[in-house]
Design a protein around this nucleic acid. Structure first.
Lengths: 210, 210
DNA sequence: AAGAATATAAACAACATACTCACATTTTCT
DNA sequence: AGAAAATGTGAGTATGTTGTTTATATTCTT
């Protein structure tokens, strides 16, 4: 029972050294993201990814030891992008509305390339391997940024974490829904999302007038 | 090419007449919902459903001609439930906050049994068959109810439909996220969701004070 | 007790798909 | 130029999955 051998942690079977191979690896990751976003986890097959990347299945397995390590790579890349967006938006001390606008714009931009990748990565794709830790770390930092914003714009809130979570999931919900309908670019939607964020964060809504 | 034969529309291969068989059918649908919610579309297999229902695979195929018709049945049942919730909440003329509270409570209740079923049904499960129409009809009525509420509580809004969509997707996002974390019952979360709805719908948030 | 309805689960056929391997091509190095 | 290393190829395999059938057993109705 103690014979459970720890799989070698190698992210990549072989480190690409030439420019050509680095381009191949990049193409594979990119194609993987597209397939994952378009077909979902159920349609995410290594052969399909290789074909979409314009590479051969052999090349794929030359750099990624198995399917999961590929998902890992995709996940890492996407999460880094999203994190950068939030980090930027919640940067220094800007007025609420500007923060909301930048956040909205950034999130939409981050999802414009692969509309439903984020959701698929969160919901469908498994995270068996060492990804568990990385995934948690992402979630943590992700929320931290939101929490910082909440603390800044909504000072008299006790449970900052809950508010941050509600806000982030609401934003994600809107983005995801719009993405599925292909309406990410609609300006009216962007405006409404900004309004939603501002309304919730400014939070002067006690005792409705009527 | 025109030889595409229209499959017989039979929802059920055989109508259950005895009480026993009706219970079996119900158990299968219920188990199907659970499997779909827990394992996702990728893990949704007829054998697993039968086992989870405490029935045999043969019984399943006695009543459902194929896998898709089973999903159809699950979908129909769930959507009916959700629709009833919204319909109730957006009933007559109540103050905004009460509407928000009832909507929140109802949505949470509807998702408490099978937390992620709704999302899976919307995102992963295919809708090849005649479900396309039913699905659209549901979406339509779903939005209508939200739009009615928007029109009632937010009179000076031009694009009612967009607002309704933003609101509904935001609520869904929060619910879905909470469901995944097993935090659906947390009272603090419920309160925050109510706040979010009220804040957005009352919409007096122009010109942030600072 | 006969016959209809319902339940069972082993078995299958068809298919999908992650992954390997032996070989071809390109790049780098001497 | 030529050897060696790096990279690319894709048919093939091995393994599993899964929707579905069928022959048989059990329970209900009349």
């Amino acid at each position: 029972m103690s014979t459970r051998i720890a799989k070698p942690r190698s992210r990549m079977r072989k480190e690409p050294s030439q420019a050509r191979s680095r381009a191949t690896v990049e193409a594979i990751i990119e194609a993987g993201a597209r397939v994952l976003s378009d077909l979902g986890w159920a349609g995410f097959t290594t052969n399909k990814v290789a074909e979409a990347a314009g590479a051969s299945i052999g090349s794929l397995y030359q750099y990624f030891p198995d399917k999961l390590s590929l998902v890992e790579a995709i996940r890492r890349r996407h999460f880094d992008q999203v994190l950068a967006v939030i980090s930027d938006a919640a940067g220094d001390e800007k007025p609420l509305r500007q923060f909301a606008r930048e956040l909205t714009r950034g999130m939409i931009a981050a999802h414009s390339i692969h509309p439903t990748l984020h959701q698929v990565l969160l919901d469908e794709a498994p995270g068996d391997r060492g990804s568990r830790a990385a995934h948690a770390a992402f979630q943590s930092r992700y929320l931290e940024h939101y929490a910082a914003a909440v603390a800044q714009y909504r000072r008299r809130t006790k449970d900052t974490e809950t508010v941050a979570r509600v806000l982030s999931s609401a934003v994600e919900g809107v983005i995801h829904n719009a993405a599925r309908r292909g309406m990410l670019e609609a300006p009216e939607l962007q405006k409404q999302l900004v309004d939603l964020i501002c309304a919730y964060l400014s939070g002067q809504h006690r005792a409705a007038p009527r």
